[in-house]
Design a protein around this nucleic acid. Structure first.
Lengths: 101, 101
DNA sequence: GGCGTTGTTCGATAGTTGTCGAACAAGGGT
DNA sequence: ACCCTTGTTCGACAACTATCGAACAACGCC
């Protein structure tokens, strides 16, 4: 089953924003931005693995991440270059851990 | 009835992103970015006035806009300075009409 | 005062989404 | 071959959200 990683230019902005507009997914994106490539299982943010898989799917289909198989795991990475090119400043604005809550 | 315009630093990033992750609201924000202050009624994007009012409320409560009464109308404006300070690059990245669809 | 304009609020409804457990699939090791 | 680990998929369910029409409120004007 192909990962279905769309061309970023074909993804509506609202989908990109919607993908980032979730706490769990934002944590995943932040972890990826800091640690680079990581296995799906490394994101334990208090949700079941079914939910985690769901969120990774949303991120992938919004064009935010790429996934590749590696043995029994799957490695996920941020499509940072493409994102920074198409939406300069977006990731930077969102990735910094803000003081409020 | 108070407009309930929160301190931007008190609004979770996900709420700001969620507010922008809607086509109608994004059109409103773009119109505001281009035309400055505008009356609620000037945003006719194919939705009823009830729906429009709802979207403006979402934007206001996410800290994206400010509203002030002006006679029988209400004038809305983008909180651009605050947004650019707290999330530099966010608006710029999102406001430019992208080619995709 | 009465009327039209401009918005907001109130249900109601349909669609979307986050969450889970359980079942399933694919690999690697022993 | 067996099993364990790692992920995905499948209902199911609850919560949220976008949308509408209708009712209501506030204001200016004639």
């Amino acid at each position: 089953m192909e990962p279905h990683e769309p061309d970023l230019t074909a993804v509506p902005v609202t989908s990109v924003l919607a993908a980032l507009a979730d706490d769990v997914r934002l944590q995943i994106v932040r972890a990826l931005a800091e640690g680079g490539e990581a296995a799906c299982g490394s994101f334990d943010f208090g949700v079941s693995k079914a939910t985690r898989s769901h969120h990774l799917k949303v991120l992938r289909e919004a064009g935010l991440t790429r996934t590749r198989a590696a043995g029994t795991s799957r490695l996920v990475r941020l499509r940072r270059d493409e994102l920074d090119t198409l939406y300069p400043g977006l990731l930077d604005a969102v990735l910094t851990e803000h003081p409020p809550a």
